[in-house]
Nucleic acid binder design. Structure first.
Length: 270
DNA sequence: CATCGGACCTGTTAGC
DNA sequence: TGCTAACAGGTCCGAT
Protein backbone atom coordinates (compact mmCIF):
# COMPACT_ATOMS: atom_id res chain seq x y z
CA UNK A 1 0.00 0.00 0.00
CA UNK A 2 2.39 2.70 0.98
CA UNK A 3 5.04 4.20 -1.21
CA UNK A 4 6.98 7.30 -0.25
CA UNK A 5 4.05 9.74 -0.62
CA UNK A 6 1.78 7.58 1.52
CA UNK A 7 4.45 7.15 4.19
CA UNK A 8 5.12 10.89 4.19
CA UNK A 9 1.38 11.57 4.38
CA UNK A 10 1.19 9.21 7.34
CA UNK A 11 4.15 10.95 8.98
CA UNK A 12 2.55 14.36 8.61
CA UNK A 13 -0.74 13.05 9.90
CA UNK A 14 0.60 11.46 13.08
CA UNK A 15 3.49 13.82 13.91
CA UNK A 16 1.41 16.55 15.61
CA UNK A 17 -0.19 13.93 17.85
CA UNK A 18 3.13 12.41 18.89
CA UNK A 19 5.76 15.10 19.34
CA UNK A 20 6.27 16.14 22.98
CA UNK A 21 3.90 13.40 24.13
CA UNK A 22 4.91 10.70 26.58
CA UNK A 23 4.28 7.04 25.76
CA UNK A 24 2.23 5.65 28.63
CA UNK A 25 2.06 2.07 27.36
CA UNK A 26 2.78 -0.04 24.34
CA UNK A 27 0.92 -3.25 23.52
CA UNK A 28 1.93 -5.74 20.85
CA UNK A 29 -0.92 -8.16 20.16
CA UNK A 30 0.70 -9.85 17.19
CA UNK A 31 4.46 -10.14 17.20
CA UNK A 32 4.73 -11.99 13.89
CA UNK A 33 5.35 -9.19 11.46
CA UNK A 34 7.98 -9.49 8.75
CA UNK A 35 10.41 -10.08 11.59
CA UNK A 36 9.26 -10.87 15.12
CA UNK A 37 8.75 -7.66 17.07
CA UNK A 38 11.25 -7.83 19.97
CA UNK A 39 9.94 -7.41 23.50
CA UNK A 40 12.48 -4.64 23.87
CA UNK A 41 10.26 -2.63 21.57
CA UNK A 42 7.53 -2.12 24.16
CA UNK A 43 9.79 -1.98 27.18
CA UNK A 44 12.07 0.57 25.52
CA UNK A 45 9.47 2.97 24.19
CA UNK A 46 7.25 2.93 27.27
CA UNK A 47 7.68 6.02 29.43
CA UNK A 48 9.64 7.89 26.77
CA UNK A 49 8.97 11.38 25.47
CA UNK A 50 8.71 11.54 21.68
CA UNK A 51 11.01 14.20 20.28
CA UNK A 52 10.48 13.81 16.54
CA UNK A 53 8.85 11.70 13.84
CA UNK A 54 11.09 11.37 10.80
CA UNK A 55 11.00 9.49 7.53
CA UNK A 56 13.89 7.78 5.75
CA UNK A 57 12.92 6.00 2.54
CA UNK A 58 9.66 4.24 3.44
CA UNK A 59 10.65 3.89 7.10
CA UNK A 60 9.19 6.02 9.87
CA UNK A 61 11.52 6.78 12.75
CA UNK A 62 10.10 7.86 16.09
CA UNK A 63 12.85 9.49 18.18
CA UNK A 64 13.11 9.49 21.95
CA UNK A 65 16.02 10.14 24.30
CA UNK A 66 16.30 6.39 24.93
CA UNK A 67 16.41 5.43 21.27
CA UNK A 68 14.14 5.27 18.24
CA UNK A 69 11.34 3.12 16.95
CA UNK A 70 11.94 2.04 13.34
CA UNK A 71 8.67 1.29 11.60
CA UNK A 72 7.88 -0.01 8.12
CA UNK A 73 4.35 -0.36 6.78
CA UNK A 74 5.16 -3.09 4.27
CA UNK A 75 2.46 -3.68 1.70
CA UNK A 76 -0.69 -3.30 3.76
CA UNK A 77 0.31 -1.50 6.97
CA UNK A 78 -1.22 1.71 8.26
CA UNK A 79 -0.96 3.93 11.33
CA UNK A 80 -3.89 5.87 12.73
CA UNK A 81 -4.49 8.04 15.73
CA UNK A 82 -7.51 6.67 17.56
CA UNK A 83 -9.34 7.09 20.85
CA UNK A 84 -9.33 4.33 23.49
CA UNK A 85 -13.01 3.76 22.77
CA UNK A 86 -12.28 2.82 19.14
CA UNK A 87 -13.09 -0.89 18.84
CA UNK A 88 -10.23 -3.14 17.88
CA UNK A 89 -10.41 -4.44 14.35
CA UNK A 90 -8.92 -7.61 12.99
CA UNK A 91 -5.20 -7.06 12.27
CA UNK A 92 -4.80 -4.15 14.71
CA UNK A 93 -1.45 -5.52 15.85
CA UNK A 94 0.15 -2.75 17.91
CA UNK A 95 -1.03 0.12 20.13
CA UNK A 96 1.17 2.90 21.42
CA UNK A 97 -0.74 4.84 24.05
CA UNK A 98 0.04 8.49 24.72
CA UNK A 99 -0.42 10.78 27.69
CA UNK A 100 -2.84 12.79 25.56
CA UNK A 101 -5.26 9.93 26.02
CA UNK A 102 -5.00 8.96 22.38
CA UNK A 103 -3.46 5.90 20.78
CA UNK A 104 -1.21 5.35 17.78
CA UNK A 105 -2.61 2.13 16.31
CA UNK A 106 -0.85 -0.09 13.78
CA UNK A 107 -3.00 -2.16 11.43
CA UNK A 108 -1.50 -4.61 8.91
CA UNK A 109 -3.43 -7.54 7.38
CA UNK A 110 -0.53 -9.01 5.42
CA UNK A 111 2.05 -8.46 8.16
CA UNK A 112 4.81 -7.48 5.77
CA UNK A 113 5.56 -4.46 7.95
CA UNK A 114 8.19 -4.35 10.68
CA UNK A 115 9.09 -2.75 14.00
CA UNK A 116 12.55 -2.47 15.49
CA UNK A 117 14.09 -0.56 18.35
CA UNK A 118 17.29 1.39 17.71
CA UNK A 119 19.69 2.45 20.46
CA UNK A 120 20.32 6.21 20.50
CA UNK A 121 22.24 7.51 17.48
CA UNK A 122 22.76 4.03 16.10
CA UNK A 123 21.92 2.91 12.61
CA UNK A 124 20.47 -0.38 11.46
CA UNK A 125 21.40 -2.81 8.68
CA UNK A 126 18.05 -2.05 7.02
CA UNK A 127 19.05 1.60 6.68
CA UNK A 128 22.73 1.24 5.92
CA UNK A 129 22.65 0.56 2.20
CA UNK A 130 19.81 2.81 1.15
CA UNK A 131 20.33 5.15 -1.77
CA UNK A 132 19.61 8.88 -1.74
CA UNK A 133 16.22 10.43 -1.10
CA UNK A 134 14.62 11.63 -4.35
CA UNK A 135 14.60 15.18 -2.97
CA UNK A 136 18.32 15.14 -2.06
CA UNK A 137 20.38 17.56 -4.13
CA UNK A 138 22.79 14.76 -5.05
CA UNK A 139 20.01 12.76 -6.69
CA UNK A 140 20.01 13.83 -10.32
CA UNK A 141 20.34 12.59 -13.89
CA UNK A 142 24.11 12.31 -13.75
CA UNK A 143 23.85 10.15 -10.64
CA UNK A 144 21.32 7.79 -12.21
CA UNK A 145 23.32 7.58 -15.41
CA UNK A 146 26.48 6.72 -13.51
CA UNK A 147 24.80 4.05 -11.38
CA UNK A 148 23.09 2.52 -14.42
CA UNK A 149 26.32 1.97 -16.32
CA UNK A 150 26.48 -1.58 -17.60
CA UNK A 151 23.20 -2.65 -16.01
CA UNK A 152 20.91 -4.77 -18.07
CA UNK A 153 17.83 -4.75 -15.87
CA UNK A 154 14.88 -2.73 -17.05
CA UNK A 155 14.95 0.93 -16.12
CA UNK A 156 11.72 0.38 -14.17
CA UNK A 157 13.20 -2.34 -11.96
CA UNK A 158 16.33 -0.16 -11.67
CA UNK A 159 14.52 2.85 -10.20
CA UNK A 160 12.56 0.62 -7.82
CA UNK A 161 15.84 -0.58 -6.30
CA UNK A 162 16.22 1.19 -2.95
CA UNK A 163 20.00 0.98 -3.19
CA UNK A 164 19.74 3.29 -6.21
CA UNK A 165 17.05 5.67 -4.99
CA UNK A 166 14.52 5.21 -2.21
CA UNK A 167 10.79 5.65 -2.17
CA UNK A 168 9.87 4.72 -5.74
CA UNK A 169 7.35 1.90 -5.55
CA UNK A 170 5.26 0.21 -8.17
CA UNK A 171 2.72 2.97 -8.78
CA UNK A 172 5.13 5.87 -9.00
CA UNK A 173 7.72 3.97 -11.04
CA UNK A 174 5.21 3.59 -13.88
CA UNK A 175 3.95 7.14 -13.45
CA UNK A 176 7.40 8.74 -13.39
CA UNK A 177 8.50 6.82 -16.49
CA UNK A 178 5.39 8.05 -18.26
CA UNK A 179 6.20 11.65 -17.32
CA UNK A 180 9.76 11.18 -18.55
CA UNK A 181 8.63 9.52 -21.80
CA UNK A 182 10.79 6.43 -21.22
CA UNK A 183 9.73 2.87 -22.08
CA UNK A 184 9.91 0.96 -18.76
CA UNK A 185 11.27 -2.14 -20.53
CA UNK A 186 14.41 -0.38 -21.73
CA UNK A 187 17.69 -1.55 -20.19
CA UNK A 188 18.88 0.81 -17.47
CA UNK A 189 22.33 0.92 -19.03
CA UNK A 190 20.92 2.07 -22.36
CA UNK A 191 19.23 5.25 -21.20
CA UNK A 192 21.05 8.50 -22.02
CA UNK A 193 22.12 10.99 -19.40
CA UNK A 194 19.70 13.52 -20.90
CA UNK A 195 16.81 11.15 -20.41
CA UNK A 196 17.99 10.33 -16.89
CA UNK A 197 17.84 14.05 -16.14
CA UNK A 198 14.21 14.02 -17.22
CA UNK A 199 13.60 10.89 -15.19
CA UNK A 200 15.14 12.28 -11.99
CA UNK A 201 12.92 15.33 -12.37
CA UNK A 202 9.90 13.18 -13.17
CA UNK A 203 10.44 11.08 -10.03
CA UNK A 204 10.63 14.23 -7.93
CA UNK A 205 7.61 15.87 -9.49
CA UNK A 206 5.49 12.72 -9.37
CA UNK A 207 6.26 12.04 -5.72
CA UNK A 208 5.94 15.71 -4.84
CA UNK A 209 2.58 16.07 -6.54
CA UNK A 210 1.33 12.93 -4.80
CA UNK A 211 2.47 14.16 -1.38
CA UNK A 212 0.61 17.44 -1.98
CA UNK A 213 -2.69 15.62 -2.37
CA UNK A 214 -2.15 13.08 0.40
CA UNK A 215 -0.89 10.12 -1.62
CA UNK A 216 -2.78 7.56 -3.66
CA UNK A 217 -5.74 5.65 -2.28
CA UNK A 218 -6.27 2.61 -4.50
CA UNK A 219 -8.01 0.34 -2.06
CA UNK A 220 -7.59 1.13 1.58
CA UNK A 221 -4.97 3.80 2.24
CA UNK A 222 -5.95 6.57 4.65
CA UNK A 223 -3.58 9.14 6.10
CA UNK A 224 -3.06 9.58 9.84
CA UNK A 225 -6.01 11.97 9.78
CA UNK A 226 -8.32 9.38 8.19
CA UNK A 227 -8.47 11.17 4.82
CA UNK A 228 -7.89 9.19 1.62
CA UNK A 229 -5.24 10.35 -0.86
CA UNK A 230 -6.40 11.98 -4.06
CA UNK A 231 -3.53 11.22 -6.43
CA UNK A 232 -5.50 8.36 -7.93
CA UNK A 233 -7.38 10.86 -10.06
CA UNK A 234 -4.08 11.99 -11.55
CA UNK A 235 -2.69 8.58 -12.45
CA UNK A 236 -1.78 8.54 -16.14
CA UNK A 237 -1.11 4.82 -16.63
CA UNK A 238 -1.16 2.83 -13.38
CA UNK A 239 -3.96 0.26 -13.38
CA UNK A 240 -5.25 1.71 -16.66
CA UNK A 241 -4.47 -1.29 -18.90
CA UNK A 242 -6.36 -1.15 -22.22
CA UNK A 243 -7.78 2.27 -21.39
CA UNK A 244 -6.86 5.16 -23.70
CA UNK A 245 -3.71 7.14 -22.92
CA UNK A 246 -4.75 10.50 -21.50
CA UNK A 247 -2.37 12.21 -23.92
CA UNK A 248 -2.65 10.32 -27.22
CA UNK A 249 -5.55 7.85 -26.84
CA UNK A 250 -3.36 4.83 -27.58
CA UNK A 251 -4.46 1.94 -25.31
CA UNK A 252 -2.28 1.72 -22.22
CA UNK A 253 -0.26 -1.48 -22.10
CA UNK A 254 0.27 -3.75 -19.13
CA UNK A 255 3.37 -5.92 -18.93
CA UNK A 256 5.16 -7.66 -16.07
CA UNK A 257 8.68 -6.57 -15.11
CA UNK A 258 10.44 -7.99 -12.07
CA UNK A 259 7.23 -9.86 -11.24
CA UNK A 260 5.31 -6.58 -10.90
CA UNK A 261 2.56 -5.14 -13.06
CA UNK A 262 3.89 -2.30 -15.20
CA UNK A 263 1.84 0.19 -17.21
CA UNK A 264 2.95 2.43 -20.05
CA UNK A 265 1.97 4.07 -23.32
CA UNK A 266 3.82 2.71 -26.30
CA UNK A 267 3.30 5.92 -28.22
CA UNK A 268 4.38 8.39 -25.55
CA UNK A 269 7.20 6.28 -24.08
CA UNK A 270 10.21 5.15 -26.10
C1' DC B 1 28.96 -7.73 -8.66
C1' DA B 2 24.21 -8.15 -11.02
C1' DT B 3 20.12 -10.68 -11.71
C1' DC B 4 16.39 -13.78 -10.76
C1' DG B 5 12.96 -16.34 -8.29
C1' DG B 6 10.99 -17.42 -4.06
C1' DA B 7 9.53 -16.16 0.30
C1' DC B 8 6.77 -13.82 3.80
C1' DC B 9 0.96 -13.03 4.52
C1' DT B 10 -4.30 -11.99 4.00
C1' DG B 11 -8.05 -10.14 1.46
C1' DT B 12 -10.57 -9.14 -2.70
C1' DT B 13 -12.15 -10.14 -7.08
C1' DA B 14 -12.77 -12.55 -11.45
C1' DG B 15 -13.87 -16.75 -13.61
C1' DC B 16 -15.77 -21.29 -13.88
C1' DT C 1 -23.47 -20.43 -4.25
C1' DG C 2 -18.91 -22.27 -3.84
C1' DC C 3 -14.42 -23.15 -5.19
C1' DT C 4 -10.00 -21.73 -7.31
C1' DA C 5 -6.69 -18.78 -9.19
C1' DA C 6 -4.76 -14.45 -9.80
C1' DC C 7 -3.52 -10.34 -7.99
C1' DA C 8 -2.44 -6.48 -4.62
C1' DG C 9 0.92 -0.28 -2.66
C1' DG C 10 7.39 -4.04 -0.31
C1' DT C 11 11.77 -5.88 -0.04
C1' DC C 12 14.90 -9.37 1.84
C1' DC C 13 17.51 -13.46 0.94
C1' DG C 14 19.74 -17.21 -1.27
C1' DA C 15 20.95 -19.37 -5.64
C1' DT C 16 23.03 -18.64 -10.05
Amino acid sequence: MPELPEVETTRRGIEPHLVKRTVTAAVVRERRLRWPVPRSFETSISGQVINAVRRRAKYLIVDTAAGSALLHLGMSGSLRIVDPTTPLKKHDHVDIALDSGRILRYHDPRRFGSMHWLAPHSSHPLLDELGPEPFDPDFDGAYLHRRAKGRRVSVKVFIMNAKIVVGVGNIYASEALFRAGIDPRRSAGRVSVQRYRALAEAIRSTLGDAIEVGGTTLRDFYGGDGEPGYFRQKLMVYERGDEPCRVCDTPVRRVVLGQRATYFCRQCQR
